[in-house]
């Protein structure tokens, strides 16, 4: 597909894909407000600096996914602030910065050793995928292994890291 430059090409795609995007946004948490959310999303896209988009459909769905993540993050930090405010009676206002740095460093070490424990291939594949943003098919050809091997290795890493996060949160 030829890259469509600028927001006019994207807008044409948005109109074509409108019902699919609305369905996705509704299922992704926007519910009855999917139309408003799509409108806000378009404002955001149209106001961003123009750059060539190789695959407009993918671009719009990805933007919709990211937009729902932004909304969720904003909502949960607002709720957290409210909660902190209510709980402030005898609680310290915030965790001291030094303590936060220590916690972050300890979490990093735990993540690194959890990945290392799964073996160097799993470790490498997870970093390539999540830090370098390389897709599964490209990783498979880089390493000369099958796509399903890459997916299985990633699943191991994801499962381990989710367990680790649960453990750290309940400590």
């Amino acid at each position: 597909m030829v890259a469509q430059a600028g927001s006019s090409g994207l807008h044409a795609t948005l109109l074509n894909e409108r019902s699919r995007l609305l369905r996705f946004l509704a299922a992704r948490g926007a519910g009855h407000e999917a139309e408003d959310v799509l409108h806000d999303l378009w404002q955001k896209i149209a106001s961003a600096p123009e750059r060539p988009v190789a695959d407009p459909i993918s671009y719009l769905f990805r933007a919709a996914e990211n937009h729902m993540r932004d909304i969720r993050r904003a909502t949960s930090s607002r709720e957290k602030r409210q909660f902190d405010w209510q709980a402030m009676g005898d609680a310290p206002e915030d965790t001291p910065a030094g303590e936060r740095v220590l916690v972050a460093r300890e979490q990093l070490q735990q993540v690194q050793s959890a990945l290392a424990a799964l073996g160097s291939r799993v470790d490498h594949i997870f970093r390539r995928y999540r830090l370098d943003g390389v897709g599964q098919a490209d990783i498979a050809s880089e390493l000369g292994i099958s796509l399903s091997s890459v997916e299985k290795d990633l699943q191991k890493a994801y499962r381990m890291l989710a367990e680790l996060r649960t453990k750290l949160n309940t400590e």
Binding site: R69, A104, V111, Q112, R130, L131, Y158, L161, R165
Partner: peptide
């Protein structure tokens, strides 16, 4: 979970 792991690394 995914974003936490990626952000930590």
């Amino acid at each position: 979970d995914d974003e936490w792991a990626a952000a930590t690394l």
